[in-house]
Structures are given as structure tokens and as C-alpha cells.
Design a protein around this nucleic acid. Structure first.
Length: 283
DNA sequence: CCCACAATAT
DNA sequence: TATATTGTGG
């Protein structure tokens, strides 16, 4: 790691250490970058730079946690050189919960729990939204692990998504399996609306027999893709809410819109990638 | 402890 | 409806 201050990362006071780092820094309000893109859209477009969605304080906190965590993992298990997806942050419904909480606490009631140190963990995370992007990553990972190794923990690790928990993956995996079970057959047929769950080729091993129409439409209507961007808890005049999905850059370009499986046969995930950030919120 | 899976819960 | 949680069994 780039030296400099002599801070040892994977030592032990991980989360505490990160917090200390943050202590002397200006608040996010003072920094702006969280709610505003550093690169003007026009400029970005001109240079083919992918803009990244805004981030919130909670994003940063969680990112720090996960980063440290991943560091520890990588150090402790320096086993096989498995490729991991570039960092990515899922969309959540944090605003809903945040709004709920702020619903009445805004008045003046806060006497109760004075200032508890926000014990980083143990916070109730907002529901995870399995956006097409996230799901694709999920499927890609499963495709590249055998069915054999496609277990929640491994999937979660390889997906490398900030804030993604093993439970998130387990739940989704369960559902995904149900889907595959029913889908066992009628695979190539009417590319209709790209199913979320069907879009990508099923992990090798499945596909036979046919039966049942299979429900579970899970696709973004053509023209409008649900960006994992949610309004942030920000006061600044930067109206952040939805990405218009212009012609220039569609959401999928965020972290890769590669035509096919890149690492299913080749392998090019290692290359740098945009830090797709959104709002893993938790609050 | 982790996983799969079904049944609930939210 | 989608996702989370819980309970059981391996």
C-alpha cells in the first residue's frame, strides 16, 4: 500500500481505524462530491467518461467497512487468484426507510438515545433492489463458478458489491434456483422481454425438459431502465433522483456493457472499472 | 459455521 | 411483488 502516514490497514482496529481517518476530514456537505459529479456531463460525454452517480455519507462509511473487510479477506485467503468484479453499489430503498425515520424525528425529539456511537454494523439495511445490473453480475458470477461453487458466500465475495450480504445473495439465489427449475426447458424461445432471470445463460448444467410457462418477468421495459440511483438525503440544489437514460450513456455502461460473457470464456474483468456508486444506504 | 429449502413475514 | 427472515435439516 502506498505508505505515507504509516497506517496499517488490516491490523485489527479496522472499522475504528477507518473512523479515525474520517475524523479530521471535512464533512460531506463541505465536500460536495457526494452529491455532485466532478466532471461536467458535457465534458464527460466528449471524452467518453462514464459519470458516476452521487454518493452519500452512508455510502462512504459502508464502503470503508467493506473495503477493509475485503482487504482482510484477500490477505487471509491468498489462495487462488480469482477474479473479482470491480466495486459496485446496489440500489436500495434507503430513502423510504430514511424518510420514515425522519418522518417524525425531525421535530425536536432526540432526547432519548443521546449520541450513541453509530456502531457501524448492526444497522438495519434497506431492502436490496436487484437491479438488472446487479442481477447480471450475480448471474455472471454464478456462471463462472461451477454450480458446485456457486454458494452464497462465494457469490457474494466475487460479486464485490458494497453492502451486499450473504443473506441478500442467499435469498436471491434461492429464488433464482426456483426460477431455473421451472425454466428447465423452453429456454431459447421468443427473446421477448429479456427476463431478468433468463437474460443470461443459465449456469451450465441446467436446461432440459420443458414445462410450465414460468412466471417471473423481470425486465426493464425497453427505453427505460431502472437505474440504481435513488434520491439522496441531500439538501443541495442538486436534484438527484433518476437518471433520464439519455442516448449517450445508458446505465449499463456504468460498469460494463460488454456484449457477452467476458470472463466466461476469456477473462477481462481484472481491468480497471468505474467505481459505480449509488447508495447502499443504511441508516 | 455454512448451505439448501420451505414457509412466513414485511 | 420482491426481498427478508426464520426454522429445519444436512
Amino acid at each position: 500500500m502506498a505508505d505515507g502516514d504509516g497506517g496499517s490497514v488490516a491490523a485489527n482496529g479496522d472499522t475504528a481505524t477507518v473512523k479515525e481517518w474520517l475524523l479530521g476530514l471535512p464533512s460531506d456537505e463541505e465536500l460536495t462530491p457526494l452529491s455532485q459529479s466532478l466532471i461536467p456531463p458535457g465534458l464527460a460525454a466528449a471524452f467518453g467518461i462514464k459519470l458516476e452517480p452521487p454518493r452519500s455519507m452512508s455510502d462512504v462509511q459502508r464502503a470503508s467497512q467493506d473495503f477493509v473487510e475485503s482487504l482482510r479477506r484477500q490477505i487471509s485467503s491468498s489462495s487462488s487468484a480469482i477474479k473479482v468484479f470491480p466495486s459496485f453499489a446496489p440500489a436500495t430503498e434507503e430513502d423510504e426507510s430514511a424518510a420514515k425515520e425522519a418522518e417524525e424525528s425531525d421535530s425536536a425529539f432526540r432526547a432519548e438515545n443521546s449520541n450513541d456511537e453509530i456502531s457501524a454494523r448492526a444497522q438495519k439495511r434497506p431492502r436490496l433492489a436487484w437491479t438488472p445490473q446487479l442481477h447480471k453480475r450475480f448471474v455472471d458470477v454464478i456462471t463462472h463458478l461451477g454450480i458446485k461453487n456457486a454458494v452464497p458466500k462465494t457469490i457474494m465475495q466475487l460479486m464485490n458489491v458494497e453492502g451486499l450480504t450473504r443473506e441478500n445473495v442467499a435469498s436471491h439465489l434461492q429464488k433464482y434456483r426456483q426460477y431455473l427449475k421451472r425454466m428447465q426447458g423452453i429456454p431459447i424461445e421468443a427473446p421477448s422481454s429479456s427476463d431478468h432471470f433468463a437474460s443470461s445463460p443459465a449456469p451450465p448444467g441446467i436446461q432440459e425438459t420443458r414445462q410450465i410457462p414460468v412466471p417471473m418477468p423481470y425486465a426493464p421495459p425497453p427505453g427505460m431502465i431502472p437505474m440504481p440511483v435513488i434520491g439522496m438525503t441531500h439538501h443541495h440544489g442538486a436534484p438527484v433522483a433518476m437518471v433520464p437514460l439519455n442516448s449517450a450513456h445508458h446505465p449499463y455502461a456504468a460498469f460494463g456493457d460488454r456484449p457477452k460473457d467476458s470472463w466466461t470464456g476469456g477473462n477481462n474483468f481484472a481491468s480497471m472499472a468505474p467505481y459505480y456508486h449509488v447508495s447502499p444506504g443504511y441508516k
